[in-house]
């Protein structure tokens, strides 16, 4: 299975990862090999099979509707690489 460089560029964009040309090339090979491997599931007939999305069988796990102590705004803002006026700062968007 081969994956084209354009496809890898598209995946990189979807994944928000900027890659060098050499990274793109080696990822095209790796992803091609891995997709080739996972394609073996095509051998299985799954038409009448329900998918498994969760394992516990638990439904609607509730907790009491009461306010618990939360982390302070200051503590959380301190984690950000850049802040201004109590807000997280990023480069101009518009």
């Amino acid at each position: 299975m081969s994956v084209s460089l354009d496809e890898v560029r598209h995946l990189a964009a979807l994944s928000e990862i900027q890659l060098s040309d050499s990274e793109l090339e080696s990822l095209a090979t790796d992803i091609g090999n891995i997709v080739g491997y996972i394609n073996q599931l095509d051998e299985l007939d799954t038409d009448q099979v329900e998918p498994t999305f969760q394992l516990t069988g638990l439904q609607n796990v509730w907790r009491d509707d009461k306010i618990e102590p939360q982390l302070s705004r200051e503590k959380l803002l301190n984690l950000a690489p850049d802040t201004e006026n109590n807000q997280v700062k990023v480069p101009k968007v518009l």
Partner: peptide, 20 residues
């Protein structure tokens, strides 16, 4: 750029397979 510099090659590989 942050994700490119911050993730290892295997992280990028797996994220991109996930996107695929």
């Amino acid at each position: 750029l942050s994700r490119s510099a911050g993730f290892m090659p295997e992280n990028k590989r797996r994220i991109m397979i996930g996107s695929y």
